[in-house]
Computed example of a mutant assay.
Amino acid sequence: MTSGCSQPYQQPYPRVLCIVALKRCGCHNKRVEHLNIRCSIIGQLDIGVIISCNFSMKLGCSQCYSQPYPRILCKTAYNSIMTRLSPTQIHRTRQLAERAAACALSYYQSDYEITIKSDESPVTQADLAVSELLEKHLPAIADFPVLSEESQPEQPLWTGWETYWLIDPIDGTKHFINRTGDFCVCIALIHRNQAVFGLIIAPTTGALWLAQTADEDNDMLLEKYQNGQAVPMPTDRPEKPIVALSTKTLSKRMSILLAALPAYDWYNRGSALKYIDIAEGKASLYPKMWDTCEWDSAAGQCILACAGGGVMRFDTRDTIHYGKSASLINPHFFAYRDLSDETLVALCECYPQAVIHPRDC
């Protein structure tokens, strides 16, 4: 529709009205067979537009519901209702992720510039190009702010955002530079401090994983794609604990922590692909006893949670939350699946003795 200032004002109001109407008539689990909505703008305020809607719908239970529905609808109001992505939005996000992966690969297979950031971590032209692509197009899919590792506001605005995109354009930049293949693009949607949607794509293999947590109107979603085609998600389970580590050697710090396990194997794996390994049953534990940022973990945490695993803080034994403070540094944590409650407790109890040792000792 068009407002009085001749600017188009578009929002998916029908979904909002349908949900309200269905719940009011007590038939919110029924199928909507027919829906008519007529809207007209009757005023405008700073926070949005006032619209008058008359709508009627025929439900699968043969009941009809008709209601004139004047109310103020604005971006803030809509965002507070929209807590999950629609199938169309998920499809568009997957397509955008594939474009981002192709962009990353175009640099991976050629020469590019590398600079060092203030935290002494490397950033490449590929990081910046992928970030720019995602920041430009994600709000067109779902109109929320974008917080990227490579583009952060000077003030911690994210602490006031109810819903926002959280992205790591290239997770595993050092692996990207060393051409190990262990890097990925991570996209997450944060709603009320929780990762409710997560997508990870590995550009060198063409594998993509996405997940969305359930709410009262949506079932949980967990999917895998290979070169754009849907494939089954593996359901393997390791016979004994297998630990995925960021390092190539087993430090004293890590050995003390892993004493909580009766027996285990371990291997080196880069980037957020460790979450994928756990979700697919190739590993059962990924401990992190040094600083990481929220964009490093959000997408992987959501995918792992939908696969039956979890992420636990060592200190509080709670999960990780997002956007609650000005600092974007995660507390120390471990990601896991198929571990007993006793093992989870033992890991938390071993942590204080382990973390006092230097990271590389």
Results as ranks from 00 to 15, higher is better:
5 C>L: 11
8 P>V: 12
11 Q>L: 14
13 Y>T: 13
15 R>G: 10
20 V>D: 10
21 A>F: 01
26 G>I: 10
27 C>A: 15
39 C>I: 13
39 C>Q: 09
48 G>S: 04
49 V>T: 10
53 C>V: 15
58 K>H: 07
60 G>S: 12
63 Q>W: 02
77 A>Q: 12
81 I>H: 15
94 R>V: 15
96 L>H: 10
98 E>M: 15
109 Q>M: 09
117 K>Q: 15
118 S>Q: 15
125 Q>I: 07
125 Q>A: 13
131 S>K: 04
137 H>P: 01
139 P>Q: 08
143 D>Y: 13
145 P>F: 02
145 P>Y: 07
146 V>L: 10
146 V>I: 05
149 E>M: 06
157 L>N: 09
158 W>Y: 08
159 T>W: 03
160 G>D: 14
163 T>A: 15
166 L>C: 11
171 D>F: 03
173 T>N: 04
182 D>H: 09
190 I>D: 05
191 H>P: 00
194 Q>C: 09
197 F>H: 02
201 I>L: 09
205 T>F: 03
209 W>I: 04
210 L>V: 02
216 E>C: 06
218 N>M: 08
223 E>I: 05
224 K>P: 03
225 Y>G: 06
227 N>A: 13
236 D>T: 08
236 D>M: 10
245 L>C: 11
251 S>R: 08
261 L>K: 05
275 Y>D: 02
294 E>I: 05
295 W>P: 00
299 A>Y: 02
300 G>H: 01
300 G>A: 04
304 L>V: 06
306 C>H: 00
316 T>K: 13
320 I>C: 00
321 H>T: 11
322 Y>C: 08
322 Y>I: 03
324 K>M: 12
327 S>W: 00
329 I>K: 06
332 H>K: 00
332 H>M: 08
337 R>F: 05
341 D>N: 14
346 A>I: 03
347 L>S: 03
353 Q>N: 14
354 A>R: 00
